[in-house]
Write a protein that binds this DNA or RNA. Structure first.
Lengths: 191, 191
DNA sequence: CAGATGTGAGAACGGGCGTTCTCCTCGGTG
DNA sequence: CACCGAGGAGAACGCCCGTTCTCACATCTG
């Protein structure tokens, strides 16, 4: 008997995730995903009717995983400032993973953003979600202007992600944390 | 008679620059460059022996243009702090250009960094050049730790570039400038 | 003028890839 | 047992694309 539908889907998504993220979306053929997942092309196409659909599912999954990992780090702290700094701890542990290759959304956007409105849209949504989360953290820390602090922290985070991806070092997370501390000194009310 | 070699090369590079930047490197075929440049495939291939070579030339050219534009903005100011802030003015004017689509190096790296060591290398060099420039600006402003201030400013800049590219707004340049002002308040000696 | 050279336009070649199709096997059902 | 539908393996199809080749023409040299 063939593999259970749910596990087939999971295997395909796992393979797609690993390959798309590692090599970029366009460099990975459906055949590579078929081989890596062990799911036949026929099944693959009945689970995901096109490569575009699979790309979309891949990005969806990344978004969810990313949010979960972020929340996990943030929720380990209770002090509002530490919850903000936890974002940068999260970045550091992410950057240290040996398969780290930057933000899947930034990469996909660079590859396909101009050519696939759907990819551009998903990237925007992902970043909007991050902004939302940071704005809430900034508000919880009593920032005078939570949106402003959040935006500053976002710039540091995004900058750290791309700098770390290109340089291959996790140091940018440390630097971003440093800068965040300084910004919070100025933007948050004294204790 | 055929077109002069120098102008043919210039036309090819112009076309490649526009197309690669706009649509991404992999989405643009040699035929599109041929059509846009008006240079025959034969000539094109004797000017650039492969698409890879053309991509490399494209990145080289982007690097040079970018440095020139940056220097132009920075050199319009004399006060060390204003020279640093000029970086963010530059970003803002860049983001406002109607064809702005992020950093060519970040985009190419996302597309091909894992698959083409040469592209990864060129991206690293480009970013190293930017870091060098910012470190000098920070030192000239008497930062206690010029490398640290430079790294913080880089994070803001890179974050602004990707955020602006994805969101389609130039606002991140303003936000980055704001944050830079705050960081300089803390990192630079008082007047 | 003869002939060699270089060029433009575009066809041709070779390979890769997204997607579909063929054929065969196998488990379940009446 | 005979049949049916689903699924696996992989061939096949169409298309795109990087690169090379053909051919006709125009220009230069002697």
């Amino acid at each position: 008997m063939a593999i259970d539908t749910a596990t087939a889907q999971r295997q395909v998504l796992e393979a797609a995730d690993a390959l798309f993220y590692e090599r970029g979306v366009q460099s990975v053929g459906m055949d590579a995903i078929r081989t890596a997942s062990g799911v036949s092309l026929k099944r693959l196409y009945q689970l995901f009717p096109s490569k575009d659909a699979l790309i979309e599912a891949y990005l969806h999954q990344r978004d969810q995983q990313w949010k979960d990992m972020l929340a996990e780090h943030v929720d380990a702290a209770t002090d509002p400032r530490e919850r903000i700094l936890a974002v940068f701890e999260f970045l550091h542990t992410w950057f240290t993973q040996k398969d780290f290759r930057g933000c899947a959304f930034i990469n996909s956007f660079g590859e396909l953003g101009a050519v696939s409105p759907r990819v551009a849209e998903l990237a925007q949504q992902h970043k909007a979600g991050f902004r939302q989360a940071l704005t809430e953290l900034a508000a919880a820390a009593n920032a005078a202007d939570p949106q402003q602090l959040a935006d500053h922290l976002i710039l540091l985070s995004e900058g750290a992600i791309t700098t770390s991806a290109i340089s291959g070092s996790a140091q940018p997370a440390r630097r971003a944390r440093e800068a965040a501390v300084l910004l919070m000194q100025v933007s948050l009310p004294a204790d």
